[in-house]
Simulated scan of single mutants.
Amino acid sequence: MTTRPGARPRHLASSPFQPKPEPTIVQYAVDDLVSHDSYGVGRVVGVESAAVSVDFRDKTVRITSPFAKMTLL
């Protein structure tokens, strides 16, 4: 049996375990202050539908969704 990568297994109603909660997707706005695990602290300078551009002083990086390594400050 093969499944596509990133596909979540379906939850059976008879299972004694609770299903995993749906991940929340954070929405960023221009001028939001963010922290990234690899780049440090930066400021959002551009917002697209599936990515944001963040200025980390020494360089500007385009980060795509999901923003796993980035948190809003």
Score class of each variant (00 low, 15 high):
residue 21 P to S: 15
residue 16 P to W: 10
residue 1 M to P: 13
residue 43 R to A: 07
residue 57 R to S: 13
residue 34 V to I: 12
residue 15 S to F: 11
residue 65 S to G: 00
residue 66 P to I: 00
residue 39 Y to C: 03
residue 2 T to C: 06
residue 62 R to T: 05
residue 67 F to G: 05
residue 11 H to M: 15
residue 12 L to C: 14
residue 60 T to R: 08
residue 27 Q to T: 02
residue 4 R to K: 14
residue 6 G to K: 15
residue 32 D to Q: 01
residue 10 R to S: 14
residue 43 R to K: 13
residue 49 S to M: 07
residue 70 M to H: 00
residue 67 F to H: 07
residue 30 V to W: 04
residue 73 L to S: 05
residue 59 K to Y: 01
residue 47 V to E: 00
residue 49 S to V: 06
residue 46 G to Q: 09
residue 68 A to G: 10
residue 5 P to W: 12
residue 12 L to G: 11
residue 63 I to M: 06
residue 66 P to L: 02
residue 51 A to H: 11
residue 42 G to W: 06
residue 7 A to K: 08
residue 15 S to E: 10
residue 1 M to W: 11
residue 22 E to A: 12
residue 16 P to D: 13
residue 27 Q to A: 04
residue 28 Y to K: 00
residue 16 P to S: 14
residue 34 V to H: 05
residue 27 Q to S: 10
residue 70 M to F: 02
residue 68 A to W: 02
residue 22 E to V: 14
residue 17 F to L: 15
residue 27 Q to F: 00
residue 56 F to G: 08
residue 56 F to W: 06
residue 38 S to T: 15
residue 56 F to M: 02
residue 40 G to K: 05
residue 1 M to Y: 09
residue 44 V to S: 04
residue 46 G to E: 10
residue 58 D to E: 12
residue 39 Y to T: 07
residue 62 R to N: 07
residue 9 P to L: 12
residue 51 A to W: 05
residue 51 A to L: 05
residue 71 T to Y: 05
residue 54 V to Y: 05
residue 41 V to G: 01
residue 38 S to E: 09
residue 5 P to G: 15
residue 48 E to T: 07
residue 29 A to W: 00
residue 61 V to C: 01
residue 69 K to Q: 02
residue 1 M to A: 12
residue 10 R to W: 06
residue 70 M to W: 00
residue 60 T to S: 12
residue 16 P to G: 09
residue 63 I to H: 01
residue 24 T to A: 13
residue 41 V to I: 11
residue 13 A to Y: 09
residue 36 H to W: 03
residue 29 A to P: 00
residue 37 D to A: 10
residue 25 I to A: 07
residue 24 T to Y: 01
residue 19 P to F: 06
residue 16 P to I: 13
residue 69 K to L: 05
residue 42 G to L: 03
residue 72 L to K: 11
